[in-house]
Design a protein around this nucleic acid. Sequence first.
RNA 1: GGAAGAGUGGCAGAGCUGGUUUAAUGCACCGGUCUUGAAAACCGGCGUGGGUAACACCACCGGGGGUUCGAAUCCCUCCUCUUCCGCCA
Length: 426
Amino acid sequence: MLEISTIREHKDRVVEGLKKRNVDTTLLELLDTIVTTDDLRKSTQTTLDNLLSQSNKMASEIGQLFKSGKTQEADTLKGKVTELKDDIKEYENKLRSIKESLDDMLLQIPNVPHSSVPAGKGAEDNEVYKNWGQPFPQLMDGALPHWELAEKYNIISFKDGVKLTGSGFPVYKGKGARLQRALINFFLDEASKAGFNEIQPPLMVNKDSARATGQLPDKEGQMYYVEKDDFYLIPTAEVPVTNLYRDVILQKSDFPIKLTGYTPCFRREAGSYGSDVKGLNRLHQFDKVEIVWMDLPDHSYDVLMEMLKHVEGLLEKLELPYRILRLCGGDTGFNSALTFDFETWSAAQERWLEVSSVSNFETFQANRMHLRFKDEDGKTRLAHTLNGSALALARIVATLLENHQTPSGIKIPKALVPYTGFDFIN
RNA sequence: GGAAGAGUGGCAGAGCUGGUUUAAUGCACCGGUCUUGAAAACCGGCGUGGGUAACACCACCGGGGGUUCGAAUCCCUCCUCUUCCGCCA
């Protein structure tokens, strides 16, 4: 959520930024409405405060009168306060509805993109920031897509997943299961080496948490919901891990806060279809190691670069060709100011698969979460939050299988062998 | 799941027979005096948000709602914690 002060003081910058997102012009008009509604909020609040002040004063006068036995005077004063109460009720209601509509409006405004973000509508306008591992390794004749490899070597069963639960819930078996576990441990170890503190969070969160990181209200339909207890299954570790710092005021010396966590991720993926959902490409449950970083505002873009380096290192150790995209305005997530997507080349499918998304939210998320720190002058200011996948398992497994296949089986990258305990799947 | 008790400012801890306490006091923390320096002592400051040029002022005593002229204090409800019982990895 943007701060109203930002909209007030830097409206030009906000408008310019939102234009890069290719948003509807009504959204730009909303900015003015927000400011005028906020003015109304202030004046209504002031009126209400004055009424409350009067009523407070009278109430304590009544107390004094009772004490000194002047019951009659007290009673007449009571009548006066009762009259005030109608006004107070009225202004309280007015204020509440103003605040609600103000909130509704603010929730519609996405983050302002960073100056480096190119304008654009969608994926076709993203900028290739870096390529690695090209030209692509040539696959042998008769190379198979990962879902066929999975079946051939009996390491992943989509069919059994359907039987147990439904589509999008694969079952990993034997070396497939072992490969999953190896990747999780590899990613967690690499994150630990890079100074991220490992967290094992709950896999369900309450509404407050889902709201704070921005899943609610906009992405409600994407989450599995446990009605009886009012919990949501997490769509990413970002939600519980970031929420550790909800409603927290830090000291400057507490930074940097670097966290990592492995969790399964649950996504309903309503409306997805076609080749998109084939095999491991898009699942309802997948494993992911997430890194979350909170820091001072003036560090956050250095931090973003450091996070990129970390993810690059992982992909290179897994010997997977990848590219990094700087997302254009239209493709950048609602909460993000700057996002880099990592895509690995799925050789057999001949398409790119997104395996990581690294973003700087600046104060957008912190504002909603109330994550702040004390500045030197004693003022509380919003911190910056960032996060990224490091990495998302299922698609990594997909490209790993496809890219490292040989006529006799699948070769495990050297860096992973200590974790799998085998170097070949056949 | 059942029963009882409890949730107060960074921590500890009063207040809880409703009105000079609209949050005492102690510790911690920050500034000052004193000191060669430090400690001690003393003086002052010391929560969050709204609001103001700055004050004033307003809101917040687990969350939400209610009673009352007035609620940390009474009532309802939810959440959490502790203890006991039940169940159980």
